[in-house]
């Protein structure tokens, strides 16, 4: 593995046998079937899987927004039962996640206010976060006055200003156009390095997962379990053009793709173990 920040770090997030079964009067649906996952301090980990495969359910359980029906989530040594402090979150639906009645600045500032950060420090944090996402100068605008990509930058700035130990992102770039998406991916990669945040990134886009991450976790279709973990041994400095045309990038994305498409029938612990073996040796 080449990207240094994650190596040897202590485990920040541990997901231990987390299962989720929705029970209603008509039927019982198992969304997650025992997910095991560990994310080290400073690591960038993506979770990919088919749509409707329980990725978002997993994210909500990790965020403490939804109780698991089996297993547990431990963040920084503490069991998650409610949204933990120092957790940043970015949803796909920026238009609904940002508070429409607050200006850009107030949106970024609100979690800090709630945390009772002193005013001067708060101002500095907000200024820096807006600058970091390239939005200095639009603080007094309302989110809806901005383009979709810029709105998602506001949501990212809000998370950054909060100085989270863990940043959860749920398909954050799925609702913007391709050009903007590339820009936002590169922005996120820069911020990850600049602030040494730990990122758990949910996406259905294999290319995006490989491009951004140090490690890709593949979930199967519902009830989802971890099918494989694939280490991304691409150079730490990544670039939309050269990285995506790197033969190794193509190999990795093919590996991930094969894991997702693998029929559930031969999804056994043996296959999963062999993949893990492979990632260690590469």
């Amino acid at each position: 593995m080449t990207s240094g920040s994650g190596d040897g770090g202590s485990v920040l997030l541990r997901v231990d046998g987390v299962g989720k079964t929705y029970v209603s009067r008509e039927r019982t649906v198992q969304a997650l079937a025992g997910i095991d996952l560990a994310v080290r301090d400073g690591e960038f980990v993506s979770v990919v899987g088919p749509s409707g495969g329980g990725k978002t359910t997993l994210l909500k359980i990790v965020a403490g927004l939804l109780p698991a029906t089996a297993g547990e989530v431990v963040l920084g040594g503490r069991r998650v039962t409610e949204p933990p402090a120092e957790l940043g979150i970015v949803f796909q639906e920026y238009g609904r996640s940002l508070f429409a009645w607050k200006t850009v600045r107030e949106n970024v500032e609100l979690p800090l206010r709630q945390r009772r950060t002193p005013k001067a420090e708060r101002r500095a944090l907000v200024d820096e976060a807006l600058e970091a996402v390239g939005l200095d100068g639009v603080g007094t605008a309302y989110p809806w006055q901005l383009s979709g990509g810029m709105q998602q930058r506001v949501a990212i700035a809000r998370a950054i200003a909060y100085r989270p130990r863990l940043l959860l992102m749920d398909e954050p770039f799925s609702a913007v156009d391709a050009q903007t998406r590339g820009d936002l991916e590169d922005l996120l990669a820069r911020l990850w390095r600049r602030y040494a945040i730990t990122v758990l990134f949910i996406t259905h886009d294999i290319d995006e997962a490989v491009y951004l991450s140090e490690r890709v976790v593949v979930l199967g279709s519902a009830p989802a379990a971890v099918r494989a973990e694939i280490a991304v041994d691409l150079p730490a400095e990544r670039d939309q053009l050269s990285t995506r045309s790197d033969p190794r990038f193509a190999e990795l994305r093919a590996q991930v793709y094969a894991q997702i498409r693998r029929p559930p029938a031969d999804a056994g612990p043996v296959a999963s173990a062999s993949i893990r073996q492979e990632t260690v040796t590469t």
Partner: peptide, 10 residues
């Protein structure tokens, strides 16, 4: 989503 965002930021 608004409510979940609010909850996540405590």
């Amino acid at each position: 989503v608004t409510l979940e965002t609010a909850a996540a930021y405590r």
